[in-house]
């Protein structure tokens, strides 16, 4: 959208949207929200960036390869963490576990925080990919 007003406002708003998304992801285990909702908000900020910056040939471009790599690495991270939890739970292994921490702190809740981060990244790029697929037919 070639609109100077929208672009200038977007420049101010997008960082706040992103910080809000990251806040929701990082506080997912403490308050309402989590990986999915935070990731959606992050993805929306990417979509908005693409909408308002595209006609001006923005410097920041998200390539298909980057999307694939971020998504796959997060999926692998999620799989490893959750798989570790499944195997130690099912096999009754007494292996080391991530400490639970003090309730209320960001670094608490064991595996929930890294899992939320992984989900957040996956959802963020998936939302963005959906938008670009429907918009252009490719990422």
């Amino acid at each position: 959208m070639k609109d100077a007003l929208l672009r200038e406002i977007g420049k101010v708003v997008i960082p706040f949207i992103q910080i809000f998304g990251i806040y929701i992801i990082l506080n997912g285990h403490l308050s309402p929200g989590g990986g999915f909702s935070g990731g959606t908000i992050l993805g929306v900020s990417l979509i908005m960036h693409k909408l308002i910056e595209e006609p001006y040939k923005s410097r920041i471009k998200i390539s298909e390869r980057a999307v694939m790599q971020f998504t796959c690495v997060s999926l692998i991270l999620y799989g490893l963490l959750k798989g570790y939890s499944f195997i130690t739970g099912g096999g009754e292994f007494e292996l080391l576990d991530i400490p639970l921490g003090i309730p209320g702190r960001i670094l608490s809740g064991g595996m929930l925080l890294p899992l939320n981060v992984a989900v957040g990244i996956i959802v963020c790029f998936t939302i963005y990919t959906f938008y670009t697929l429907f918009d252009k037919g490719e990422i």
Binding site: M68, C72, V73, L75, G79, G83, I87, G90
Partner: peptide, 20 residues
């Protein structure tokens, strides 16, 4: 006893390693 779960995990993890 853990192998069935391990099989599913190995297949999923390795298949998501491929696009990288």
């Amino acid at each position: 006893a853990n192998f069935p779960l391990l099989i599913i995990l190995i297949l999923f993890l390795s298949s998501f390693m491929m696009p990288v």
